[in-house]
Design a protein around this nucleic acid. Structure first.
Lengths: 276, 276
DNA sequence: TTCTATTTAGAATATATATTCCATATTGAC
DNA sequence: GTCAATATGGAATATATATTCTAAATAGAA
C-alpha cells in the first residue's frame, strides 16, 4: 500500500473506512465501528484501553491501522487527535495535499483558506470562552468614562484605529494614543480619574504599550485591558480585563476575534451612553 | 497541599493559575503561560515534547503539576483533555446556552454574538465567492511593484494600517497614505509606473479615497482595488479588483473577510517576492 | 470433508514516557 | 556580603505503551 493516498484528516479517514466496510475481517470491522462511534476515546486512549473498550486484542488495533496503510496505530491516532484540536494544516501540508489530490487550484487561494479558517476558529473560541460578566464590567467601566484613551500599537493599532473611528461616529469622546509624534506619554498624561484607558496588547507585548498603561494604572486611572494571557503584563494591572487568543496561520495571527470584541464594546458603550 | 481544592475543569484551572501568576518561580510561570497559550499541545503532547516546546526540562512539568496540587503531570493533563472532549459534541448546545444565558443576563453578550455571526458569515461568503484567478492576478501585480501605495480611509484605514505594519515586518516597501497631515495627494503623487496602488473603499465610498485613486489610475499607475460592488467607483478604474461584501450587525459592517483577504495578499506577495 | 490462506489471541519484546533524585544554581532575608 | 531556603537542570529509574511474533483458530475453495 502506497503512502500517498493516506487520509490526512478525519473526513477522508471516514470515507476510506466506509469504502472498505464490506470487505473487512470481523475484528477489524469491529474496531472500525468502534472508532467511528467513539472518536474521542480513540484520540485520548491507549492501545490497551481502546482495545478493552472495543473488546478486541491490542494487536488488533495495530493490524487495523496497518490494514488502512498506516505504519502503526499511533499514526492513525494522530488523525483522531487532529480532529479534536482542529489543527489547521500549515501551508506546506496544504500544498502537499493539493498535489496528492491533483486538484488544480491557485496557491494564493490556499493561503486565503488558511486565514479564513484561523479567523473562524478564533471567533468560535472566543464565543465559547468569553466571560459575560467580565464583558459587562468592561462596558460599564468604559461607559462611565468622560474620555476613553485608546492604547494599542503595532498589531493592535488597527483595532484602536477602528474604535476611534467608530466611537467618533457615535459621538463618544476618545483619544487615540499613537506613537506618531512621539507625544504618546504626554497625550495620555491628561487622563483623569473620570476617564478610562482601554489598552490592547498581545505577545510579544510592545514595551511602549505596557509602559504607558502601567503609568496610567499607577496614577489610578480606570483601566480596561484586552490581552492574551493571565501572564500578560496588562492582566495584573486591572481587575477588568478580557482574554482573547487568536489562532494563527503560518505565524500570522488572525484579528477577527479581537475585532468582533472591539465592535461589541464600541456599540455597547455607545448604547449605554445614549440611555443616560 | 490537600486534594480537596484541586481544579476539576479547565476554567477552575485557569483561575487557579491566574491567581498564582504573580508568585510563581520563573520556570513554573513559563510553563503556566505556555500551557494556557497552547492548551491543545498540552492535551496531546508527551512530557518530553511539551517540555521542548515550552523550553523547560521535563521535570519542570512534573514539578509544575505538583505545585498545583496534582500528583503528577498526567493528572494535570487530564484537565486539558477533558476540555477538548467536552467541546466538539456540545458545541451547538453551548451556543444555545450562550444565547439563552445572554438573554437573561447580559445584553452585551448578545451584541457580541451578533458581531461574531456577522464575521463568520462574511468569511464564509467570501470563501464561496472569491475568484482564485483574480486573487492570483492581484498578487502578481502587487508583487511586481517597487513600492505599494496603500490607500484606505475611515472604515478601511485599519486594514491598510495593518498591511503597512505586516509588509514592513516582511521587508516589502509600502507607503501608507493617510489624510493626517493633509498631504495625501502629494504623497501618492510620487508613485511611478513601477509602483502599484492598493486601494480599499466601501459604501459610502470616501470621496478622498476615490479622488486619490482616480488620479493615480489616470496617470497610468498600476492599481489593485478592493471594493464591495461592480458599481463602486473603484471597480471600473482597474481590470484587477476584488469584490468583498461584509455582513453587518445593527448597521456595523464586519471587517473579518476584508482582513483575511488583506492578510492573504500580504503573505502571498511577500512570499512571491522572496522567491524572485 | 480437506486443504490453504487469512485472521486472531495472547504472550514477548522493544520502545517511549513519566517520575524521581540529587548536585548545582538562584533567590531572598538579614 | 552571608546564609538558608527555594528552584533548577539533567541523569537515572521505574513504569507504561506500542508493536511484533507465533501458535491456534477460522473462513473459504475445491
Amino acid at each position: 500500500m502506497s503512502t500517498i493516498d493516506l487520509p490526512q484528516d478525519f473526513a477522508a479517514l471516514k470515507t476510506l473506512i466506509a469504502g472498505r466496510a464490506g470487505v473487512m475481517p470481523r475484528r477489524l470491522a469491529q474496531v472500525a465501528a468502534y472508532a467511528l462511534e467513539h472518536p474521542d476515546e480513540v484520540a485520548f486512549g491507549t492501545v490497551a484501553s481502546i482495545a478493552e473498550h472495543a473488546v478486541v486484542q491490542p494487536s488488533t488495533l495495530v493490524r487495523f491501522a496497518q490494514s488502512l496503510g498506516f505504519e502503526g496505530f499511533s499514526d492513525l491516532q494522530e488523525i483522531f487527535r487532529d480532529r479534536l484540536r482542529e489543527r489547521l494544516p500549515n501551508y506546506a501540508e496544504r500544498l502537499q495535499n493539493l498535489r496528492a489530490h491533483a486538484q488544480s487550484h491557485a496557491k494564493t487561494s490556499l493561503i486565503f483558506d488558511g486565514f479564513s479558517e484561523a479567523s473562524e476558529k478564533s471567533i468560535r473560541d472566543l464565543r465559547e470562552r468569553l466571560d459575560p460578566a467580565m464583558l459587562e464590567k468592561s462596558v460599564e467601566r468604559l461607559s462611565g468614562a468622560e474620555t476613553i484613551y485608546l492604547i494599542g500599537l503595532r498589531r493592535s493599532y488597527p483595532i484602536t484605529a477602528y474604535m476611534a473611528y467608530a466611537f467618533g461616529k457615535l459621538g463618544v469622546k476618545t483619544l487615540l494614543v499613537d506613537a506618531r509624534g512621539g507625544l504618546a506619554a504626554e497625550e495620555v498624561g491628561f487622563a483623569s480619574k473620570q476617564d478610562c484607558v482601554l489598552a490592547f496588547s498581545f505577545t510579544p507585548y510592545a514595551s511602549e504599550t505596557v509602559a504607558l498603561t502601567q503609568a496610567q494604572a499607577a496614577r489610578g486611572i480606570p483601566l480596561v485591558a484586552i490581552t492574551d494571557s493571565p501572564f500578560s503584563p496588562l492582566a495584573n494591572l486591572s481587575d477588568v480585563w478580557i482574554e482573547v487568543q487568536e489562532a494563527n496561520f503560518e505565524g500570522f495571527r488572525s484579528m477577527a476575534a479581537t475585532l468582533a470584541l472591539a465592535m461589541t464594546l464600541t456599540v455597547a458603550v455607545a448604547e449605554r451612553r445614549g440611555k443616560m
